[in-house]
Simulated scan of single mutants.
Amino acid sequence: MSTTNKTSVHPTSFFLLGIPGLETAHIWISIPFCLVYMMAVLGNGALLFIIKSDHSLHEPMYLFLSMLSVADLILTTTTLPKILSLFWFNDGEINFEACLMQMYLIHSLSTMESGFILAMAFDRYVAICNPLRHPTVLTHTVIESLGLVILFRGVVLISPYPLLLRWLPYCKTTIISHTYCEFMALVELVCVPTRIQRVYGLIIAFLTGGMDFILIMCSYVLILRAVFNLPSNDARLKTLGTCGSHVWVILVFYPPAFFSFLTHRFGHHIAPHVHIFVANIYILIPPMVNPIIYGIKTKHIRKRFLKVFIVKNA
C-alpha cells in the first residue's frame, strides 16, 4: 500500500492524453502535423543554409532570423517526434525527468524566440528611424552580444521551472491532458498549494513575452511616426515594405501564444480540445511559416533559394 501511494505521489512517468475529446481522430490529425514538421525542418534548414552561404545576407535582420530559425528547429524537434509517437502508436508515456526537460526546453526556446523577434523589431526601428547610424549601432559584435543576452535570458529565467515542480506530490493523476509537457499542465496535477509556481509563471510571462510585445509595439509606433513624415507615398510604402515580413512573424507568433497562456490560467470555460489545438498551433505553425514568409516577402532570399535549389536540380 505504501509503495502504491509513493508511486502515485512521486510518479516515475506521466501519460500524455493528446487532444482531449479527439482521441479517435489522432491518426488523421497526425497527417498535417507530420507535414508541418517536415516543412519546418526543410524550410528552416534551407533558410539557414542560404543565410550562411550568402555573405550579402549577413545583415542584422537576417542574422537574427537565423537565430530564430535555430530556436524553431530545436523547438519542433523537442515536441513533434513525441506527439507523432502518441498519435501513431498511442505511446503517451513519458519519463518524469524527460517530461521536465521537454517542458524546460519548450518554455526556454519560446522565450528565446520572443527575444529574437524583439531584436528584429529593434533592427527595423534603427534602420528606419536612424538609418545613418544603423551600420554603427548594429555591428556584428552588438548582434552577437544581443544573441547571447537573449540566450542567457531564456536559460536562466526558465531554469527554476523544473526545480519548482521536481519534488511536488502529484497525487491527482499521472495523465496530462495535453500533447506535450507544459508548465501549467503539470501544475494542475499537484495536490498541494501552488501559489508560488503560479505567481512565478505569471512574472516570467510578463517579463519575457509580455514586455517583448510591449516593446515591439512601441518600436512600431515610432516606426510609423517616422514613415508618415516621409515626403511621398512611394517612399512610405517602400519603407513599410521592409517591415512586412517581420509584422507577419509577430502576428503568427504572439496571438496563439497569448491565447494559450491566458486559457491555461483564466479560460476554464473554453473547450479543452480548442485550447490544446491552439497550443499546438503555437508550437508548430511559426517554425513552418517563418521561412515561407521570408522566402516569399524577401526578394534576395527568394532569388537565392531559386538559384541554389531550383537551378541545381534542373
Rank of each mutant, 00 (worst) to 15 (best):
F183N: 04
V137W: 03
L151G: 09
I175H: 06
V137S: 03
S108H: 11
I94N: 00
F96I: 07
F122Q: 11
S159T: 14
F183T: 09
A121S: 15
I175Q: 10
V156H: 07
G154V: 08
V137D: 02
P81V: 09
L132A: 15
L164Y: 07
P162D: 06
E144C: 13
H107D: 06
Y180S: 02
V156F: 11
H140L: 13
G147A: 04
T179N: 10
I175G: 03
S85L: 10
I158L: 14
L105A: 11
M103K: 00
I128M: 06
E144T: 14
L151Q: 06
I94H: 00
F152R: 11
L84K: 02
C129Q: 01
I158C: 13
M120C: 08
L80C: 14
V142N: 06
M103R: 01
K82C: 03
H134P: 05
I117G: 00
T174R: 08
V155C: 14
P131M: 05
N90T: 08
E113Q: 15
S177L: 11
A127T: 09
V149A: 11
G92Q: 01
G115M: 01
L80A: 15
E144D: 12
M101L: 12
W88H: 09
I128V: 14
Q102S: 01
L148G: 08
T141Q: 15
R153P: 01
L164N: 08
P162Y: 03
L132K: 15
